[in-house]
Design a protein around this nucleic acid. Structure first.
Lengths: 225, 225
DNA sequence: TCCCTATTGATAGTATTACTATCATAAATA
DNA sequence: TATTTATGATAGTAATACTATCAATAGGGA
């Protein structure tokens, strides 16, 4: 038996649910490939259509524009991560252990999850690192937010914030520290690989070093004085 | 006597030096205004040309494309900040005091510096918050880096890293902590104003809270144990 | 079996963007 | 006065980001 893991996405993100058809799944799968390959700026629905042997019209029936597709993909990643966190911290009581697992999940390259056939989580992780913030760094962020596009990100942040508060109930900035962990897990990775002098990881270029940095950062802050 | 403060920019960023002519200064000034108003995605050379009463051709003589203009603007901001830091920490010996001033400079809204007539540092700060990371989150980041486009950012990071090491010479991640401070000063501000549940500052929405968070984060990490 | 509907494909067309090229003109400079 | 230099005006192109229309096909129910 194979358990297929399913994520229900915000309906305002798409015109037709891409998870309900082969074409839809192809769109998701090859979007990830193409965005990873060419970057989000150079990514167009025309190129995507050519790649999967359909037409621009075909894509536009699923997604209004490439911005919503990016938001969809990053939101999907947040949902998947949230699930991974719930799964991997389930039955663990020590919040320190839980938080360490979270940092590991955030900072280490994801392996392709076979439960989700059409999504390559490794590539997805790379995309979120390099393009993820473009999903919200826009003029329409408030409207998008009203439509709950960023709920998965916020939920993730809330979950991590809860772990933080469990470690030290007196700590004053659980949510800000949570968003800092998330963003820095990604940015330090991008810097390490592209602008290494912005980090201390230029020589080895290992994700383990980012994990060590984040652990130090977080648990120094949470140390009860 | 009025001291005009001058920043020498990387020549590979422009085709003609915008600081040497009225048109050039107009381009810089109104770019900042327009990007702030419409966001970088909706910003075009045509709109910019209309706004300042010139033609697209006129702009293209100064900047190859809008990406280089954005890099120019963000690099200019880094240079200006670097100067502010040098100026405000000059003659101060205590590295803790120096670092606190840096955090203040990064997190608090800049006031328009009258030494630079055509640049509105307040708007510039807003632009760097919302659009700054788009300058390096691109596929060409490595080529841009080879041309030293990000040197001002790296220098800023190195300066702050030095202050960090002065606070605690044994601290292992001075550069990563520096880039974390810079990015988080901006991201927490963006989140506070646009996605407040990613922060702990939703109610008051005051920059002073970001300063407090960053101070706590940094000085917990640097506490000698 | 036939009808109906949903999905996809094919083609065309538009406004805008991101440029490049050419020529004219006015101001500064030598 | 001759000559650069900066700017302006106009035109044109390829690509992008869509929208509209119509045809083909496939599956499900009556």
């Amino acid at each position: 038996m194979k358990l297929q893991f399913h994520i229900t996405m915000n309906e305002a993100l798409f015109l037709r649910n891409p998870e309900t058809s082969d074409l839809g799944k192809n769109i998701l799968q090859h979007s990830v490939l193409l965005i990873h390959q060419n970057g989000f700026e150079a990514f167009t629905f025309k190129k995507l259509a050519e790649q999967i042997g359909t037409t621009e019209t075909g894509i536009y029936r699923y997604f209004e524009n490439k911005h919503k597709l990016l938001v969809y993909i990053t939101a999907w990643y947040c949902c998947w991560l949230e699930f991974q966190i719930q799964y991997q911290t389930n039955n663990i009581k020590d919040p320190v252990v839980k938080l360490k697992r979270v940092i590991n999940l955030l900072a280490k390259a994801a392996e392709d999850d076979e439960q989700t056939s059409y999504m390559d989580e490794g590539l997805l992780h790379q995309i979120v690192i390099a393009e993820g913030s473009k999903a919200y760094l826009t003029k329409q962020v408030s409207e998008d937010n009203k439509q709950q596009f960023f709920k998965p990100y916020k939920d993730l942040c809330a979950t991590i914030g809860t772990f933080i508060s469990e470690c030290n109930p007196k700590y004053k900035y659980p949510r800000s520290l949570a968003s800092t962990i998330i963003e820095m897990a990604h940015f330090q990775n991008f810097f390490m690989n592209n602008l290494p002098s912005l980090t201390d990881f230029g020589k080895k270029k290992e994700e383990a070093e980012i994990v060590a940095f984040l652990n130090d950062l977080v648990f120094s802050s949470l140390k009860k004085s």
